[in-house]
C-alpha cells in the first residue's frame, strides 16, 4: 500500500523521567503502514529530549508557553505553518489544550487539522468538575472539593478523612496525611498551576488505566486497558501490562457514548478490593504510555490523525493481552552547537 505523505506537528517532546506523550506518539506514527510522516516537533523548553532525537523528529521549533496569550502563541504557529505547511497538530500537554481547542477554527483556516474534545467536554471533565461529571454520567467518582483560598484548608477536616489527594489544576498530585501537608502542597501546586487546587478522597485499590479514542459521534474507535506494574517516586508508570477487563472497557465505551467524546483520552481508575471501579481522573489527550497500545495492536496516534483529516475508519476490534512496556532512560549525546542553534534561532 502506498503510504500517505503527511506533515504532522507534535508537542510534548519532554521524554524525561516524567515523560510527555510526544515521543511515543511519534513512534506510533513512524510505524504506521498508512502514513509516511514528516514530524515537526514543537518544544517549549530547550532541553526537551525529543528535540535531539533526529531519527524521530525531523525538525523542531520552539513555541512560547500558552501563558503568554493565544494571539502571540498562534502567531508562532502561523510562522511555523508558513515554513512547513502542516496537515495535523497533535497537542499532548494538558496546559496547552485549552488554547488549542479555542483555536480550532483559526487553525483549520490555516489548513491545520486537529482532533480534540469540545470545550464543553474539556471543561466538564476537568478535575474541579469531575465529581459532578461522575454524577451526570453515572460513574463512581471519589468525593472532591476545589479550594481557592488558604482559608478553605482548615475546613477540610469536616468533609474528608485523611489521607487525601491534593491535585494541581493541570498536573501533579500528592498524598497528604494532615492539614499541614495539605497547606504545603496547596502552596506548591497553586504557584505552579494556578487555582483551584483539588482535594480528593483517597481510594485504596489498584490503579488501572485505559487509553481510548472517541470519534465524536459516540463510537469508541480504540480502547486498551493497562495496569501499572511499577510506579516511580513521581507516580509515573515504569512498567505496565495490557489486561483483559471487560468492566473497564464497558465503562470506557459507556462514557464515550454518553459524552460523544471526540479525540483521545486516558481514564485513570481505581479498582477496589471489593471490585468497585472509581474514576479518579480523565486526561483529555493521549497518555505517555500510548506506545503500549500501538504494540498491542491499536495504533491510536495513526487513527487520531486519520480522524483529524476527516477519514472514515473502522473501530479496532481487539488488542493483545499481556503486552508489557518497561520504561528506560538513555543518555543521548548532544553538542553546544545544537543548543546554540536552538537558543538563538528557535529552530533545530
Amino acid at each position: 500500500m502506498n503510504k500517505e505523505r503527511l506533515k504532522i506537528a507534535v508537542t510534548g517532546l519532554n521524554n524525561t523521567d516524567n515523560p510527555g506523550p510526544g515521543i511515543p506518539v511519534i513512534r506510533g506514527l513512524r510505524e504506521s503502514d498508512k502514513i509516511d510522516p514528516r514530524i515537526i516537533g514543537l518544544a517549549y523548553e530547550n532541553l526537551e529530549p525529543g528535540i535531539y532525537m533526529k531519527n524521530l523528529v525531523d525538525k523542531t521549533y520552539q513555541i512560547p508557553y500558552p501563558k503568554i496569550g493565544s494571539d502571540i502563541f498562534l502567531e508562532r504557529i502561523e510562522y511555523i505553518n508558513d515554513n512547513e505547511k502542516l496537515d495535523v497538530i497533535i497537542p499532548n500537554l494538558d496546559a496547552e489544550l485549552y488554547t488549542f481547542i479555542k483555536a480550532e477554527k483559526k487553525l483549520s483556516t490555516l489548513g491545520i487539522h486537529t482532533f480534540l474534545p469540545t470545550l464543553e467536554q474539556f471543561e466538564e471533565r476537568s478535575k474541579s468538575n469531575l465529581y459532578e461529571f461522575g454524577q451526570k454520567y453515572g460513574v463512581k467518582v471519589p468525593f472532591s472539593k476545589s479550594i481557592t483560598s488558604f482559608l478553605d484548608i482548615k475546613n477540610l477536616v469536616y468533609a474528608f478523612d485523611f489521607p487525601v489527594l491534593v491535585k494541581g489544576k493541570f498536573y501533579d498530585a500528592y498524598l497528604a496525611y494532615n492539614l499541614d501537608q495539605v497547606a504545603g502542597y496547596y502552596n506548591k501546586l497553586s504557584s505552579k498551576w494556578g487555582l483551584p487546587v483539588i482535594v480528593q478522597e483517597f481510594i485504596r485499590g489498584t490503579e488501572v488505566n485505559v487509553v481510548a479514542l472517541g470519534d465524536g459521534k459516540g463510537n469508541t474507535i480504540a480502547a486498551v486497558p493497562m495496569r501499572k506494574q511499577y510506579i516511580t517516586d513521581k507516580g509515573k508508570a515504569w512498567g505496565g501490562i495490557t489486561i483483559q477487563d471487560e468492566n473497564l472497557l464497558k465503562i470506557t465505551r459507556d462514557l464515550i457514548r454518553k459524552t460523544k467524546w471526540r479525540g483521545a483520552m486516558e481514564l485513570e481508575i481505581i479498582k477496589t478490593s471489593a471490585g468497585q471501579y472509581y474514576l479518579i481522573e480523565i486526561n483529555p489527550r493521549i497518555p505517555a504510555w500510548v506506545y503500549l497500545a500501538v504494540a498491542a495492536g491499536q495504533n491510536i496516534p495513526e487513527a487520531l490523525v486519520l480522524l483529524a483529516l476527516g477519514r472514515k475508519i473502522e473501530p479496532f476490534k481487539s488488542y493483545e493481552v499481556g503486552k508489557m512496556f518497561i520504561r528506560y532512560s538513555y543518555d543521548m549525546i548532544g553538542d553546544i552547537s545544537q543548543f546554540e542553534q536552538l537558543s538563538m534561532n528557535g529552530e533545530l
Binding site: 517549549y44 530547550n46 532541553l47 520552539q62 512560547p64 502567531e75 536552538l342 534561532n345
Partner: peptide
C-alpha cells in the same frame, strides 16, 4: 543568561 529549560530566546520572544 540562557536557562536550560526556560524559553527566553530571540526566536521565541514576542
Amino acid at each position: 543568561k540562557i536557562k536550560a529549560g526556560v524559553p527566553d530566546k530571540y526566536g521565541m520572544q514576542p
